[in-house]
């Protein structure tokens, strides 16, 4: 009895301790960034261009760049990813080929993001001649996001019980109408959750945009998809390690990190809200 009691407390201690360590790391990181970054946050910081060799001013072009980039990523990866998932889950017969395709997609999700960067450089920048541009970078991030979107959408579709599909089919509704009117509306919160989490991850990526279009500094923004752009994660990298006056720009770097984290957090909380709402509905 004594021994059992000891083992029980011991494991409680180990498991609880591990959780505590992980959570405290997260807390320390957030505290560090927010405490040093909040002082730089102001309306001017997010609404003006960098000035004086980037030692002054704000991060407006990086914010716009990240938004544009994510927009292109979304436009490319969401329609293709969702369509591919619908095909795999609703139409494809469970043959060896389908399973190979599915396994390949899962494996693509594990490819390091720098490889996507190099691939994007070869395909979009050079072969398709889009140049180093927000378009090339957006498409590259789109490729990176596709496997996640396909996988999460397929999972969302799998959770829709077959009895619901049969209900519609038995009324003489075609398979396409069943998917469009019954399956997709029901799976939408799950699909959106996956899409948002994927995009928030893509928005924070640096390696894939490194070769495909991100710039140190631009002094004007146009609506062209062929322009180079600034992005929050790269701006942060540059301010932290590549700038001549690292000490002087440190507050700007912390400010940028704070904005980036806030963007990603708000996207993620949207996803959690959707998931929560979906769960309470059932």
């Amino acid at each position: 009895m004594e021994r059992k009691h000891f083992v029980n407390s011991f494991f409680w201690f180990i498991l609880g301790g591990s959780t505590l360590i992980v959570v405290s790391f997260l807390g320390i990181i957030l505290w560090d960034i927010f405490s040093k970054g909040f002082s730089s946050l102001s309306w001017a910081f997010i609404s003006s261009f960098p000035r004086d060799g980037m030692t002054q001013g704000g991060i407006l072009p990086a914010i716009i760049g990240t938004v544009l980039l994510t927009l292109i990523t979304t436009l490319f990866s969401v329609p293709f990813g969702v369509a591919c998932a619908i095909y795999l889950n609703e139409y494809a017969k469970p043959t060896l080929l389908t399973n190979i395709i599915r396994a390949s997609i899962r494996n693509l999700a594990g490819v390091p993001s720098i490889i996507y960067g190099l691939f994007g450089l070869a395909l979009f920048v050079q072969a398709l001649d889009f140049g180093t541009s927000v378009l090339s970078a957006g498409l590259t991030l789109g490729l990176l996001s596709l496997p996640y979107i396909i996988t999460t959408t397929e999972e969302a579709l799998k959770r829709i019980p077959n009895s619901l599909r049969e209900a519609a089919l038995a009324l003489g509704v075609t398979q396409f109408e069943t998917i469009k009117d019954v399956v997709l509306p029901k799976a939408l919160p799950g699909i959106l959750t996956g899409v948002i989490l994927t995009l928030s991850r893509a928005a924070g990526e640096t390696a894939p945009i490194l070769f495909t279009g991100v710039a140190f500094f631009i002094n004007g923004i146009s609506a062209s998809p062929y322009q180079e752009f600034m992005a929050l994660p790269y701006h942060l990298y540059m301010l932290s390690t590549q700038h001549n006056e690292i000490e002087q720009v440190r507050p700007l770097a912390y400010g940028t990190a704070t904005v980036l984290i806030l963007v990603v957090f708000s996207l993620n909380s949207m996803a959690f809200y959707l998931r929560f709402k979906n769960r309470t509905q059932d």
Partner: peptide, 14 residues
């Protein structure tokens, strides 16, 4: 399927 309708084991409202 319009001429031959079906009711399932578990109620499955849309």
């Amino acid at each position: 399927r319009k001429r031959i309708g079906m009711v399932f084991q578990k109620p499955n409202p849309l």
